[in-house]
Design a protein around this nucleic acid. Structure first.
Lengths: 160, 160
DNA sequence: CGCCACATCTGCGAAATCCGCAATCAGAGG
DNA sequence: CCTCTGATTGCGGATTTCGCAGATGTGGCG
């Protein structure tokens, strides 16, 4: 192996170009065999297996089935913008602890926090947004965007 | 062959409880063996295999590796709210055609459309949002929320 | 420089899993 | 009753996964 990749980034776990390539393979097909991935990235089957296991253990990636909840049925989904006063990260943690929150991100802009929630029905959503989320200390106000239709959902950022 | 997009004839395929159970299994671990899934849902290995293949072909679910692009490195990410005049769906399709758009959803609320974009750097993001997106006919205005930190990302709505 | 510690990669059998196929089963009509 | 269609099952045989031992490489340190 000639050189380790330059990784000037600070803080995050260091990923060399080979691990990136492995992730790209698995973004195309999460069940692709280790042997095939090995041929594609130039590693042995065993080495790929070890790297994948490590990436999973470290939480860098996860291999899962993803669906459109609205298509699969029974549910109401919404994006919620949250205005926070005080410790944004603490509020984010509190909201992230809720089962109904699928996606929680801290942002720069008019909202301090953006949360995607998945609920059983309208009543459930009302309860989650208007009671549980707004009850979190530090939450000043929220604004909701109920999903009407999911038009695109991709996980192949590395492959273009 | 890469999986194409969702099924042509719009209608949502009927999903019985067994298929739902299979999806839940794969949401916990996308590489779980068919035999193990079969034991869990009460079906033979071959039957599970065929159902999974069908779900993938229909575009109901996809099995992929997911990561936090910000953690993996080198990228700027943002959520963009879009105000549309005219045919919302046409605008959604136009934006969904862009590689940088990972997630496009039609919503009810102040925004007609919410788009998640992944970019190489600030300049790239500026170009995508301020030129390409706003150039789409029907886009009245946009509002951006740059990601600072991803706090939670789950795909296990079925398992609670 | 020599040597050890630590991490990664490779090569292999053995065991488990995947895959294709033909037969079987269940429900809807004619 | 018979046929058609779609789903399920039960097999081998081909592949893949898994665990482990040995080889390789890099960095620290006396």
């Amino acid at each position: 192996m000639a050189s380790r990749n330059a990784d000037p980034s600070g803080g995050t776990p260091q990923l060399d170009s080979v691990s990136l390539a492995i992730i790209e393979q698995l973004q195309e097909d999460g069940r692709r065999p280790y042997g095939a991935i090995g041929k594609a990235v130039g590693l042995s089957e065993a080495a790929v297996r070890q790297r994948v296991q490590k990436l999973l253990d470290q939480g860098v990636m996860q291999i899962v089935a993803v669906t459109d909840p609205l298509t699969v049925g029974f549910r109401r989904q919404a994006m919620v913008g949250v205005h926070v006063e005080g410790d944004v990260e603490a509020v984010a943690d509190a909201i992230a602890a809720m089962d109904e929150a699928e996606y929680v991100v801290m942002t720069a802009g008019r909202f301090d926090l953006i949360v995607e929630v998945v609920c059983e029905d309208d009543e459930h959503m009302l309860e989650v947004i208007n009671r549980r989320v707004r009850a979190v200390p530090g939450v000043r106000s929220t604004e909701s965007f109920v999903y009407l239709k999911l038009k695109k959902q991709t996980y192949m950022w590395g492959t273009r």
